[in-house]
Simulated scan of single mutants.
Amino acid sequence: MDMYENFGDAFQHPPQTAKMTLDQLSGIDCDPLNIEGYFNACAAFHLSGVAQPFWHDWPLTDPHLFFTPESLHHWHHEFYDHDVKWCLAVVGEQELDFRFSVLQPLTMFRHFKDGISKLKQVTGRAQRDMQHYIVALIVDAAPHGIDIAVCALMDFATYHKRQQSMKHIVKRLLVPSRNFMNTSNISLLSARVEVPRANRSLTTGIYPNWS
């Protein structure tokens, strides 16, 4: 089974299916009431220690299909952990901090008077507020293609927040996903921005699953 260290691999690992998980649970020779012993036995399979998952008797279901990405970690944290670091690298910390600091304060959004490069304990709301500004702030400072890739990620996150996934919304999701796929690698390499292995999962993990 692939772990987080493998997220940057340039190929898709086999999914963690319901059958695989249930087979692993059935192969554990330990009483679930022995909490410590059962938990340790599950750790060998990277299982959480739940003896009977709530979906175990659901026919024709698989967790890797119905557990879809959620906003806080897959959109806001992804943005701050990856997109912001790319922008800081290509624009420069001092320049991007200055651009954030001179923005007109708005009641509904956080004002980053000291910039964003030195922030600590950043909340999901602050990360969301940065997303409203980032494309406009880098558009004339980042190399061509970086702004397109970042804008594509922002569009993708925006469309995903809709309450209903109708067919025309799904089609719209494909456009920013493909724009990102087509521009990200070339633009980042030409700008000499190093993309850590974990960051490369954006092009082989979350976004291709929606396209």
Rank of each mutant, 00 (worst) to 15 (best):
I28Y: 01
V50W: 00
M1N: 07
G37L: 10
I28D: 00
V195I: 15
H82G: 05
A41Q: 02
K167Y: 06
Q12T: 13
S211P: 02
E78S: 11
Y38G: 00
R128F: 13
I134C: 01
Y38P: 00
W210D: 04
W58M: 13
V193R: 04
L33E: 15
T183K: 06
A136Q: 10
C42L: 05
S201L: 02
D83L: 12
T107K: 14
D23Y: 00
Q127R: 15
Q131A: 09
Q164H: 06
L60E: 15
I146C: 05
P59N: 12
K171S: 09
P14L: 12
G145F: 05
F39M: 06
F39C: 04
Q16D: 06
L47S: 02
D97H: 05
C87Y: 08
C87P: 03
R172F: 03
F66D: 05
Y207H: 07
L47M: 05
A152N: 03
D9W: 04
P105S: 10
G8Y: 09
S101N: 06
H111R: 03
K113W: 03
Q52F: 07
K85L: 08
P143T: 12
T204F: 15
W86E: 07
R128W: 13
G37A: 15
K161Q: 15
L189H: 13
K113D: 10
A136K: 08
V193G: 00
L33H: 12
A191L: 05
A141H: 14
P105H: 11
Y133Q: 10
